[in-house]
Design a protein around this nucleic acid. Structure first.
Lengths: 214, 214
DNA sequence: TATTTCGCGATTGGATACAGAATGCAAGAC
DNA sequence: GTCTTGCATTCTGTATCCAATCGCGAAATA
């Protein structure tokens, strides 16, 4: 029974995974909510099997927590775990920014510049959805410049988790957010690896409104 | 039908995952080998379902690659990807070492010291299996001292992947390996965060025999 | 009234069944 | 002799089915 999508060529599991991820990240399904296979499968019009695999996939990404024989729920984090997430993400974003500054690829930088300009515009309006999408694009493009795909995958996973935690905050700092992006981009353009790294790390801490450790 | 194991209380999927991981990391299943659900399930005496989930799990860890409608195989890495793995792992091990040096917990350090002593002994004999197990213990204990569980999970995943790639190398540098461990431990004991980080990163590069980038 | 036990419904874990896609091989055309 | 085409086989993707377990509430007992 097809969802409303182009029938048989994209594995159903992938679609379900994407749908659930979307719903979790957007806050449509709240933190801690139980995710019952049967309910979800009925809701999406597929069998339990793709739902099952989607939940495992999301569990691997850390968005969902599965307890054996008890089922899945949207992951909740303790304050301690939030700090941990931010700490790791800051470190990896710093590494990526450093790499980006070193590689310094003009055409990719041009693309990033364009995303930045668009984002600066959007950050005036307070369209939360559009802003978060543009934010995603910026970080994704920066990851491309860094050019380490392993790193990018890990950062993406961390970004998802932090995004779902700090979404409420990020709404209130659209402008500062894009000013920080601009500063990072400048450092990358200048090939100033150390500065880029520093700014990227600080950017992560700021977005989480967590004081950078001492 | 049960594998030869304690019946019904540990989720089968977990057992299968562990079995496959073991086989891959030990090199029993070679890089690039196709992993056919039916074959494996028959071989292990379980249905395809736990095997399927195990493969997805391992794919999430990066040990296995799944192509839609083509199936799973043991991940192979290009030289470029190997460099990327090492680069990220070095950065995260450095972070963890830094945290460990800062936290500096005496009782945990005592445990690590003991593992180190045992390892130094074992490194004389060239029992590859025992050595790699002890190596695992050392890094795991160091991760505990660092105290960031998110970080530790990511490092573990990276460690698995690098271990499977560089196993041939590591056999020939048992002693140097443990000397480096000793140096890291000393820096942690001294609370010298910067040095610990530096040594940990260098240790990763050395284990991979990849020149630390410039 | 508080507490323990039992049983039932809800839910997950695992097996089996079936349909559709990919691959390899063989037969035929050029 | 080589390339193409079509068929048979193999394998994955999804659905359905059965068994085992968990949680909760009701009932029984102290």
């Amino acid at each position: 029974m097809n969802i409303a999508l182009g029938a048989t060529h994209a594995p159903l599991t992938k679609l379900v995974t994407a749908a659930l991820r979307e719903r979790i990240l957007s806050g449509d399904i709240p933190l801690g909510e139980r995710l019952i296979e049967g309910k979800l499968s009925e809701e999406l019009g597929v069998s339990r099997m793709p739902v099952r695999e989607a939940l495992r996939e999301l569990a691997a990404e850390g968005l969902v927590t599965i307890e054996p024989r008890r089922g899945a729920s949207v992951t909740t984090f303790t304050e301690e775990q939030k700090r941990e997430l931010v700490e790791v993400r800051a470190t990896l974003e710093a590494l990526n920014a450093k790499l980006a500054a070193k590689r310094h690829d003009p055409s990719q930088i041009a693309e990033l510049q364009q995303i930045l300009d668009e984002g600066a515009g959007i950050s005036e309006s307070e369209d939360a959805i559009q802003l978060s999408q543009q934010n995603f694009r910026f970080h994704e493009a920066l990851g491309n410049i860094g050019g380490n795909s392993v790193l990018q995958d890990m950062i993406r996973s961390l970004r998802d988790r932090t995004a779902m935690l700090f979404a409420p905050i990020s709404r209130h700092r659209g402008k500062q957010n894009w000013q920080e992006h601009a500063a990072i981009l400048r450092a990358v353009i200048d090939g100033d690896a150390e500065l880029a790294a520093l700014l990227a790390a600080r950017h992560v801490y700021n977005a989480a409104q967590i004081p950078q450790d001492g």
